[in-house]
């Protein structure tokens, strides 16, 4: 037990990333506000980044850092476009509840 508590290793970082990813997944599944869903997606991307950095550290390979940097750039682009879509949806409907966006259903 004290080994797990006081001897922080790769597994700790990986489990932290997994828990973060699962919280993000739960947010995407449970919440109805499109903004919160976007933030949960960002959480999942961050969890993946943490895993990348942990494995880069584990194998002594710096390309994991490059990959994480690129993931951050893609996340920024995704946030910009996603928020633009949220604003456009809000302009037409006055709410961003994803359960009420049923125009494309059927």
């Amino acid at each position: 037990m004290s080994d797990i508590l006081f001897n922080v290793g790769y597994g700790h970082f990986l489990v932290l990333a997994a828990v973060l990813f699962l919280i993000g997944t739960a947010g995407v599944m449970i919440r109805r506000n499109a903004l919160i869903i976007l933030m949960s997606v960002e959480l999942m991307l961050n969890a993946a980044n943490m895993t990348l950095l942990t494995f880069a550290r584990m194998w002594g390979d710096l390309s994991g850092h490059t990959f994480a940097l690129i993931v951050i750039a893609v996340a920024a682009a995704e946030a910009a476009v996603g928020l633009a879509i949220v604003v456009a949806v809000f302009r037409g409907r006055r709410n961003v509840d994803v359960d009420r966006l049923t125009t494309l259903r059927h």
Partner: peptide
């Protein structure tokens, strides 16, 4: 990230996420 010795990525995380993306939100 700092504990993983990814000092550059830690700074980028702070700048890009906590700075830019959160301001957008």
């Amino acid at each position: 990230y700092m504990m993983l010795y990814a000092s550059f990525l830690a700074v980028i995380q702070m700048l890009v996420y906590a700075g830019a993306i959160m301001v957008l939100f």
